[in-house]
Amino acid sequence: MTNTISPQSPAAWRDPALGARRELALPQGTLPVFDSGSGDPIVFVHGLLVNANLWRKIIPAFSGEYRCVAIDLPFGSHTTAMTDADLTPPGLAELVIAAIEELDLGPVTLVGNDSGGAVSQLVLAARPDLVARLVLTSCDAYENFPPSFFDYLGLAARTPGALTSLAVTMRLRPVRRLPIAYGWLARRPIDRAASDSYALPVGAKGIRADVRRAITGLDRQYTLSAARTFADFKNPVLLAWSAGDRFFPERYAERLAVDFPDARIEWIHDSGTFSPEDQPEQLIQAIRVFLNDQKSPPSNPPKSPKSVPPPKS
Rank of each mutant, 00 (worst) to 15 (best):
R171H: 06
R171I: 00
L172D: 13
R173D: 14
R173N: 11
V175G: 04
L178I: 02
L178E: 12
P179S: 11
P179C: 09
I180G: 04
I180H: 03
A181I: 12
G183W: 05
G183Y: 05
G183C: 08
L185P: 06
L185V: 15
L185I: 14
L185N: 13
L185G: 12
A186S: 15
A186P: 03
R187C: 04
P189N: 13
I190S: 03
R192P: 04
R192N: 08
A193Y: 01
A194S: 15
S195C: 14
S195T: 10
D196C: 03
S197P: 07
Y198F: 15
Y198V: 01
A199H: 00
L200H: 05
V202S: 07
G203K: 04
A204H: 13
A204F: 07
A204C: 02
A204P: 00
K205L: 05
G206C: 08
G206N: 06
I207P: 04
R208A: 04
A209T: 14
D210I: 10
V211L: 09
V211T: 14
R212W: 06
R213A: 08
R213V: 00
R213F: 01
R213L: 00
A214T: 15
A214H: 14
I215N: 00
G217S: 05
L218Q: 09
R220A: 13
R220D: 05
Q221N: 07
